[in-house]
Amino acid sequence: MRHLANKGSTTPWLVAKLAVLAIAMFGFGYLLVPLYEKFCEITGIDGRTAGQATGVEYLTDQVDESRWVTVHFDATVNSGLPWQFEPVERMMQVRPGKLYETTYIAFNRADRPIVGQAVPSVAPGRASLFFNKTECFCFTEQLLGARESREMPVRFVVDPNLPERVELVTLSYILYQNEQATAVLAATD
């Protein structure tokens, strides 16, 4: 008498299928990385969607004159980067739908060239979907020579569809040292 066999599936075949499932799930772990990014982009889950500048001029024909939104500009320098970094204006009253420009200033206090990189973030996270930057310095490498300072512009439009209850939006840049690029720089000197 034989043991009951699973109809249509011998043991080696079943094992192969399960092994493929395991390998696929390993891949799925990696797939979660782009999925998460996409998910953030759609939902604004971590407030970082306003990452890249769209590069496209936002249509400014529908300025919402009925309300003001306060935009707060925030700057943080990571302790591993000997720079000073500040927004020129701390707060700005803006009309949704209208294009504005502001400036951040960065200063390299060290006596050697350093590459920095800014990571943007918007709080509250849900506002990031409605915060459109047409020009910004996010994620691009910024090279500052020894004791050099630079003005870095940001042009943005707050989407008129921003939920009514959001009155205050913080645009934050956190500046990190790009250690690899800085090291390359030091090596080529």
Binding site: L21, F26, G27, F28, G29, Y30, I174, Q177, E179
Partner: peptide, 29 residues
Amino acid sequence: IAVMPVLAGAVTMLLTDRFFGTSFFNAAG
């Protein structure tokens, strides 16, 4: 079978972030 490989993937990302310069979880990168 469904989730142990996901853990393996997550810790592999930690490994490459720590030793091989990837930036899955490194805000600076």
